[in-house]
Amino acid sequence: MARVVCIHGIGQQYAGERQLHTAWHPALADGLLRAGTVSALDADEVRCVFYGDLFRPPGRTLAVQDPPLDASDVDEGFETELLLSIWAEAARTDEAVLPPDARTLARTPQTVQRALNALSRSRFFAGVALRGLVLDLKQVRAYLCDPAVQTAVQERVAAAVTDRTRVVVGHSLGSVVAYEALCAHPEWPVRGLLTLGSPLGIRNLVYDRLRKPGAWPGGVGTWTNIADEGDVVALVKDLRPLFGDRVDCHLVHNGSRAHDATRYLNTPQVGRAVTDGCGLD
Rank of each mutant, 00 (worst) to 15 (best):
T93I: 14
E79I: 08
Q65V: 02
L82D: 01
L69C: 09
V74T: 03
P68D: 03
L69P: 03
D70G: 14
S85L: 15
F78S: 02
P68T: 04
I86Y: 05
T80W: 11
W87M: 10
D75G: 05
A90P: 10
Q65F: 04
W87K: 09
T80Y: 02
V64C: 10
A71T: 03
L82H: 05
F78W: 15
S72N: 08
D73N: 06
E76A: 14
D70L: 02
I86R: 05
V74H: 06
L69F: 11
F78H: 07
D73P: 02
P67T: 04
A71N: 03
D75P: 00
E89N: 13
A96C: 12
A91V: 12
D94M: 06
L84Y: 03
D73I: 03
A88F: 01
P68E: 03
I86P: 00
T80H: 14
A90G: 08
S72H: 12
V64I: 11
W87R: 10
L82S: 01
E76P: 05
E81D: 15
A90H: 10
P68F: 02
A71Q: 08
G77E: 09
L84N: 01
D94L: 07
T93G: 01
D75W: 04
D66P: 00
A90V: 12
P67E: 05
A88Q: 13
D66T: 04
L82G: 01
D73Q: 04
L69G: 03
A71R: 12
D94S: 09
A71P: 01
Q65R: 13
D75N: 05
S72Y: 06
P67I: 08
D75I: 03
D75R: 13
F78Y: 15
E81P: 00
E89I: 11
S72L: 07
E89H: 13
T80R: 15
V74L: 07
A96P: 05
A96V: 12
V64W: 08
P68H: 02
A91W: 13
D94E: 15
E81Q: 06
A96D: 15
A90D: 07
E76Q: 12
S72M: 06
A96T: 15
D66N: 13
T93C: 14
S85E: 11
G77Q: 11
G77K: 12
E76V: 15
A71S: 13
A96F: 14
P67Q: 09
T93D: 04
Q65W: 02
D66V: 02
T80M: 09
G77A: 11
L84H: 03
V64R: 14
L82T: 01
D94V: 07
D70C: 09
S85P: 00
F78D: 04
V74F: 09
Q65G: 07
T80D: 07
D66I: 00
D70E: 09
G77I: 10
E76K: 07
D73L: 02
L83W: 06
T93P: 00
P68S: 04
D70H: 10
D75H: 11
A91G: 10
Q65A: 14
S72C: 08
